[in-house]
């Protein structure tokens, strides 16, 4: 460095960019990830709107059955004389056609948006909670002995055991044996995917627990749960949250695979997965019933994956492309 900034002056200079701003700029440079990010924001808004317009203020009613209007291709105008006028779709047009019961596919997809995203987010929320809890316990109380085993051994062996189960087969078994309900699916997907988070949080905690700020907190007799959740978890959580983005994508895919086998979210609740698996029966007569939900899942999951990968790159300096 040619000229040196005197110590006191350098101290007074604010950093040119905040930490978050810096990460954000890196994300912006990755155009695919940045576009995916805005797409996901739009999707969230759509999910909320969809929830409102299909449940609270019924503008698009996904449950109206019009048997005389079966299998209409997308963009068909409403011309039927058999169906009562109040069952007509909004604007008198079936934007995405109708299915085998004459239900409006657009309304069903809109309803499915919120349900599918809820499944994804709740499942990931559960897996994060369990993962952070067990990982934190193992990392913080690792040296405590219970009988002849340490807490760390106990928890990490349990993680190993959970990792040995064939995940999809286990999910299938439990979902099939339990009564079919959307909550069971979320819980089961969540409870079978927390192991990675737990391992990661434990590793972070092992390096955090001897750092000065933790020792300082301990010296002030702050309760241990507070040290863990207020002081340590925020320091370990960023990469976990990033990989959670990809977890949402996986959960949506798992739900659609379960739907395909007939164990997914049951009717009358619509999700992208069960619209797709119902539609596949009519692949040749009404291809839109397969293509619309199929490509929706593809694009949304793709957006989650690209956005998650972009965030991971932004938050992990080691992976950055041009150092």
């Amino acid at each position: 460095m040619a000229e040196r900034i005197p110590y006191h002056e350098a101290d007074a200079l604010p950093p040119s960019k905040g930490l978050f701003q810096e990460r954000w700029d890196i994300l912006k440079r990755n155009r695919m990830a940045y576009a995916s990010f805005w797409f996901l924001i739009f999707l969230l808004a759509l999910a909320v709107l969809g929830k409102v317009f299909t449940q609270a203020v019924v503008v698009f009613d996904p449950k109206v059955v019009r048997l005389s209007e079966k299998f209409l291709p997308p963009f068909t105008a409403f011309t039927s004389t058999l169906t009562p006028e109040e069952d007509a779709p909004v604007l008198g047009i079936y934007l995405l056609g109708t299915d085998e019961l004459g239900r409006d596919v657009f309304a069903r997809m809109l309803e499915g948006t919120s349900v599918s995203l809820t499944v994804g987010f709740v499942a990931v929320g559960i897996s994060l909670t369990v993962g952070v809890f067990f990982g934190g316990l193992a990392g913080f109380y690792g040296r405590v002995k219970l009988g002849f085993l340490t807490v760390d051994t106990l928890i990490m062996r349990f993680v190993d055991i959970m990792l040995c189960f064939p995940t999809f087969f286990l999910i299938l078994t439990v979902v099939a044996l339990l009564p079919p309900s959307i909550y069971n699916i979320m819980i089961v997907i969540g409870l079978t995917s927390w192991m990675g988070t737990a391992r990661f949080v434990r590793a972070e905690f092992l390096s955090l627990r001897d750092q000065d700020f933790v020792i300082a907190a301990k010296s002030q007799a702050i309760p241990e749960w507070r040290i863990i959740f207020v002081h340590m978890v925020p320091n370990a959580i960023a990469p976990v949250l990033v990989s959670a983005t990809i977890g949402v994508a996986t959960a949506i895919l798992t739900e659609s695979a379960l739907s395909f086998l007939g164990f997914g979210v049951q009717p009358p609740d619509a999700t992208w997965g069960n619209i797709l698996s119902d539609g596949k029966t009519f692949l040749f007569d009404a291809p839109w019933l397969t293509f619309i939900p199929g490509f929706t899942i593809l694009f949304v999951v793709l957006a989650f994956n690209l956005c998650g990968e972009g965030l991971r790159e932004a938050f992990n300096p080691k992976l950055r492309s041009n150092p």
């Binding site: 994508a249 895919l253 692949l283 899942i297 593809l298 999951v301 994956n305 690209l306």
Partner: peptide
Amino acid sequence: YALISIPGFFLSYL
């Protein structure tokens, strides 16, 4: 990424 994101059974049907 597209292949990871597509549901396996949908791709198979296509």
